[in-house]
Design a protein around this nucleic acid. Sequence first.
DNA 1: TGTCGTACTTCATCTGTCGTAGTAATTTTA
DNA 2: TAAAATTACTACGACAGATGAAGTACGACA
Lengths: 110, 110
Amino acid sequence: MISSDVIRGYNDTIILYLLLEKESYGYEISKKIKELSDEKYVIKETTLYSAFNRLMKNGYIESFHQKQTHGKKRTYYKITGLGLQYYQEKCQEWKLTKEVINRFIKEEFL
Amino acid sequence: MISSDVIRGYNDTIILYLLLEKESYGYEISKKIKELSDEKYVIKETTLYSAFNRLMKNGYIESFHQKQTHGKKRTYYKITGLGLQYYQEKCQEWKLTKEVINRFIKEEFL
DNA sequence: TGTCGTACTTCATCTGTCGTAGTAATTTTA
DNA sequence: TAAAATTACTACGACAGATGAAGTACGACA
């Protein structure tokens, strides 16, 4: 499993990636994360919803409601221009981070 | 710059990597991290020393003192068998983490 | 004499994650 | 048709690791 301390800086990025594909809501996002990571990363509900709040506060996502015929009421989220910009920065940062951490990893242990 | 939230889970690993090369002390470790990362990551003093404490508490490193002719007294650290084992696990975990996060990163933004 | 570099320590604060718990509707299954 | 599972959240408190600020102390150098 992946330790939460590593993913810590990338939960927001992961969520933004999925919202870039299409607008979505909490439960769906969490399913997608699990699926896309081959069950290797399952985000905790509280982590997810606190991430939504943070992303909202920063203006990286916006929420809205859609009329539904069935199922419980959902809060949908979509990414903003600012959010896209932030996502792009994080992609750059990730590249750098990978390179740096790799220098402290012994290949023979992989 | 690299955000501290990403590196968060890997400070201990980075330190262990350097102690694997040779036993060392705080100031030297911090210099080496800066140097090896091409100044892209500079560990904060408080972060470094609190990492030493954690690593000691977990039995991953041991401290000792060396007689010195000049300069301020240093605390040297060396990695233990348990520390090596932990380091190896972290190397494995890093591989997995990289793969998982990569799936949420758009290549065209790199 | 004063500043710079070395080599730490203490303390308080912040952020993000996570455990626990609760609510409430809808869908499945027995 | 009643119970159980799934969907879709919210609130709250605790915790760990990183960090800022500040202080200590010694030697070298100018």
